[in-house]
Design a protein around this nucleic acid. Sequence first.
DNA 1: TTTACTTTGCGTCATAATAACGCAAACTAA
DNA 2: TTAGTTTGCGTTATTATGACGCAAAGTAAA
Lengths: 228, 228
Amino acid sequence: MTKQFSSYKNPSLAVDLVVFGYHQRELSVLLLNRKDEPFKNGWTLPGGFLQMEESLLEVCSRILKTKLGIDKLYLEQLYTFDEPDRDPRGRVISVAHYALINPRQLAVVAGSMANDVQWFPVNALPRLGFDHKRIFGQSLQRLKSKILYHPVGFELLNDTFTITELHDLYETILGIEIDRRNFRRKILDSEYIIATGAKREGLKNRHPDLYRFNKHLKQNNFQLNIPS
Amino acid sequence: MTKQFSSYKNPSLAVDLVVFGYHQRELSVLLLNRKDEPFKNGWTLPGGFLQMEESLLEVCSRILKTKLGIDKLYLEQLYTFDEPDRDPRGRVISVAHYALINPRQLAVVAGSMANDVQWFPVNALPRLGFDHKRIFGQSLQRLKSKILYHPVGFELLNDTFTITELHDLYETILGIEIDRRNFRRKILDSEYIIATGAKREGLKNRHPDLYRFNKHLKQNNFQLNIPS
DNA sequence: TTTACTTTGCGTCATAATAACGCAAACTAA
DNA sequence: TTAGTTTGCGTTATTATGACGCAAAGTAAA
């Protein structure tokens, strides 16, 4: 244990963040290239230590703001990881969270991104430091199962979107093929997305085909029942 | 903030436990009557602080062993609660877990139970100290949803049980009526429970009607799909 | 503009899953 | 012995689902 931790009587508390972004049928995660030991020059999830008087969500916001310049996004606590040897510097317990950012925010991030920050497709991750591979895996697992019973996938899309975009998102995240017409029927029958009345740029005769999430429905009835 | 915490640079880490027991169509939770301030003489969930070098599950085991004299049981991490004012003594972050104990263990507990420990039916809880009402509520919520897609309810029953007992358990936990015959068909079709070949004491001509959980099936396919 | 190709919205149909409920044999208690 | 309850096993109508057809709308190249 290094000097940094020797004065603590409790384990240190940290948060780690799995930030998901989606673009053109690709789900990606944001990783950080470490400048310091341990895992110097290696990739890890962004994270940070909890200060006294700071809530977990505040730490998350602080990290996201500092590293990405982003304010509001979908954020959810995932799990608390406490293996005694998960951090070579000493006992650090990490409350992992995952975040979903939409295309607009993704663009902001891309514009101002430091060169130690990088997007990686979830299917092509580099080796990760600490126990971050496990944390990432569990996040992806959660995301996969959650989109089936909670309309959380919408957070990865623009405010308005086409059904095809939503369909592609689901296929990408779940990694399976979903019949386009059955998906359409299910999602429209549920009334969780509704037409905006608008049509895509350039379209002339087609019915309205831009949709948005219906915020007036209780989100807890959402149920897609797509086999995994 | 009291002296006890003033030397820490990090928030303290604790665990709180929601211990569920089931008996005769009643789901109960184990509560502790506090001897000390804060909430002296009030009821709270059992809990304890994390020592350096101790894992979260170890703390849970330690508490359960000390307070209840019980060793092995179903234990699952629930959520980490971090509201800065959740503990009047100072900043304490609690990783809540919930546990399920079976009738045999419940009997052991009942036999050796200190008078500061008591079972309360989940529908008749006393006022709880700290933010424990919220923790309890979230545990019950989790239990309710989890038994629908994971065979976790079995942990509250004996090794062998009748379908009726299982049916009653589900009705009790979910707080709804479930058609006996449809429940039977679903649970038997799924093959998650199988006949033991034995019959209940005293029965003569009836088919085997004692069942046990089928451990040979992958538990992740369990799906009951009962409307809530 | 014509032509060939792709995308999208809407519909059909066979099958599976589900909810509601009937019934008689096994069991229990008076 | 009798009356009432519990339990196992069915049936049926309705709904949900998966698989797929098809034509209008849209796109891109000649």
